[in-house]
Every structure is written in C-alpha cells, then in structure tokens.
Simulated assay, not measured.
Amino acid sequence: MSKPLIHKGRASISNTVGRFEKQSRQAEDDGWGGLDADLPPLPTEIIIDSSRSLISYNDSPDIPFDRSINPYRGCEHGCIYCFARPTHAYLGYSAGLDFESKILIKPDAARLLREELAKRNYRCAPLALGTNTDPYQPLERQHKIMRQILEVLAETGHPVSIVTKSALIERDLDILAEMAAQGLASVYLSITTLDRSLARSLEPRAATPQRRLEALARCRDAGIPAGVMVAPLIPVLTDHELENIVTAAHAAGALCADFILLRLPLEVADLFHEWLQQNVPLKAEHVMNRIRDSRGGKAYDAAFHQRQRGSGDYANLLEQRFRLISKKLGLAKSLPPLRSDLFRKPSAGGQMSFDFFT
C-alpha cells in the first residue's frame, strides 16, 4: 500500500483534478518505493488574479448581505472542511491541495474598489469580507491587500462586516476602531473548536483557538462590535463544544453568536471523508452518518435555509442547545446594523466626487 499524500502544514491528503477537467491523474508506484518516501514541504504558489471587478453580488435569501469582496482566491489556512474549496475548480485547479497552495491575489484591489464605488449607479450597502476565503490568511502579512481595502472604505464612509479565523485582524484595529465609532464596522471571529490539537489538524495554518479569543477581546477593547461564529459545527467531533465555545467567546467580549452546521458541497465531501479516515478512523463513519442524518440522507443539502442549519432531529437539537446558551448568556441574535448614510463616492482618479460637496 502506498503512503497517503501528506504534507506538513496541509490538511488535504489528495489533489484530485477539478470536476471540469477532461483528464485525471493518479499516483502509481513504479517499484522504486518513491511513494513511500517522506513528501517534501509543499510551498505556496502566488498567482496574480487579473479580474476586472472586485465586488461580487448575490441574491441568496438566507444570508444577510448582498455583496462581498474576496481579496484572495484559495486559502492558505487550509481548513479541510471549507465550503469554498470547489470554487477552485472554476480556475482549473483542484479543490484539494491546490486550494491551499495555489493562491490568487488581487494586488490592485484598492484601485478596483475605488473605481466600482465611484460608479454613478453604485448604491451603498454593507460589504462582507471573509465569507468565502479568509481576507487575513497568512499571505496578507506580506501583501496588505485587506488593509488597502479598509483604507478605501474608511475614506469613503462605507460600512463593512468581517469574518476571520486570524489574529492578524489586530493589525488593522486602528482603522476598524475609527470606522466602528461611526457605526461602519463589525467583526466576527470564527471558532470551530477549543481543542488545539484538533484545530491544528482541521485548520493547520489558522490562528490557534486561544489567539482568536484574544483577538476578539482586542476588538472589544477597541470598541468594535464583535461576535463569534461557531463555524462549522462538526457532528461527533466538535458538536459537544458548542456551549463551551459560545461561553468562552462571551467572556472575551462577544456581543452575539451564531453557528453553521458543517457543509460538504461537491468535492469537499470526499476530501473531508479522506481526512476523517486518516486522522480519526474509528469515528469516520459515525461522523458521516450523523451528517447524513441532518442532511436528508445525503452528505449535503444545498437548499436555501437548510444549508446553514440542516434538518431533522439532530439539527433541531443543536438549534435548541444554541438558543438556550445564547439566552443564558444574554447574547444578541446579531450585531447592531451598520450605517450606510455616511457614504460618499470617490472619483476613480483618487479625488472626492462633487457629491461630497453637495
């Protein structure tokens, strides 16, 4: 038997070609034992994203925003459960190791954003960041694309909501605190587990759970409305931690909490199953069976409103437990709404538009 495809610091153990590709590849042992040797570290490859637009719009009835920005496509955090993995197939890459190691960046994101906000027909509404891939993933330390985006949003008085698993958000507290004082910014820290060992395996390059709690406290101290997103809640592996995560986040300063049941669309189901068999083999089938119990017998149900919470007795029990702990701690259902009335259009050339003076 060949050795599993395991690279230190990566969660995926396969790199199956994208679902739109005509050809496939498979490792074969040529008899020289090459597949049994230790694999070298897998470096991150940076690819320039030449997209001509930055803001993505949606009309989904089960999410509270209609526009978002993703400065990076792919995510170096490498969370094995990430529902965004299948988007890499549209680029000709794998949802497995490629998603973690081939990262598309948008170095001119601030310029594109300024141009889109300056358009005559643009109407302001809160922008969401971190809803697909994390804007504060490790590459952000070097490229600072997220900070440049925030500078444009602060300059124009544009509201923004951020979800992240990274303590790197502390770097931008100066901008976010000033925006929050005007009702223009809010933050959610996403926490999957409080178990450091499990977190290292599930989400190998994300901040430790304790660092995320510390970042949440730093947001609170800076006056930024912040909440916790228990995401994803994984049956059998982390579902027993629901109350502990919410309680810890409340102690760190979270004003509200929410949770999302594990989502396994398309390629993610096989990738996650591989991870289970490699890391928790005795629990693998138990986890998958419980997932199917909450997804109408399937690994995933993409129906609006069902995809976030699931259905059936198990999903209903999770919902009841979440409501009880939220009520006990006095947590709100959501953060305060952001203001959109302070927005002023920039010009594409960097000067304020005439609307600013009227």
Rank of each mutant, 00 (worst) to 15 (best):
S166G: 08
K283T: 08
K283Q: 15
L139F: 07
I105Y: 12
I47P: 00
F272M: 00
F354W: 12
M229W: 11
G297W: 01
L202Y: 02
D195Y: 07
G227L: 10
A254N: 04
R196C: 13
V228M: 02
I191R: 02
Q308I: 12
L237P: 02
L261I: 09
N244Q: 14
I245N: 01
G9C: 01
W32T: 15
R147L: 04
Y136S: 04
S60K: 13
T247L: 04
V236S: 09
E203T: 06
D293P: 03
H77Q: 01
E285M: 09
I47K: 07
L150D: 06
I63Y: 04
E241W: 00
S201E: 14
S68G: 11
C219A: 11
S347I: 05
E203F: 07
H273E: 15
A125V: 07
P40C: 07
A315Y: 08
A284H: 04
H143D: 12
R147Q: 13
L317K: 12
Q320K: 14
G183M: 02
P135K: 06
D270C: 08
H286V: 15
V152E: 12
V17M: 10
L104M: 13
L324M: 13
A180P: 08
A89H: 06
D341H: 08
R220E: 10
I48W: 09
A226H: 03
L261P: 02
G330I: 06
S161K: 08
I69M: 04
E267D: 11
L198I: 06
Y314A: 13
Y122P: 05
P337M: 10
E203W: 06
I48H: 11
F354H: 13
L139E: 15
D59M: 10
H88C: 10
M179E: 08
S186Q: 15
L194C: 08
L266K: 11
T193P: 07
D313A: 13
M146P: 09
I105T: 11
R171E: 14
E243G: 01
I162W: 09
C124Y: 01
G130A: 00
A177Y: 06
P232K: 09
L153G: 01
D174Q: 07
D59W: 05
D355S: 14
P232D: 10
W275I: 07
I175D: 00
I175Y: 03
F272L: 00
G253Y: 01
T44D: 05
G9N: 03
H240N: 10
R263E: 12
R147P: 10
Q148G: 09
E241F: 01
A252L: 03
K345F: 09
R220D: 05
K119Q: 15
L113S: 04
A128S: 12
G96F: 03
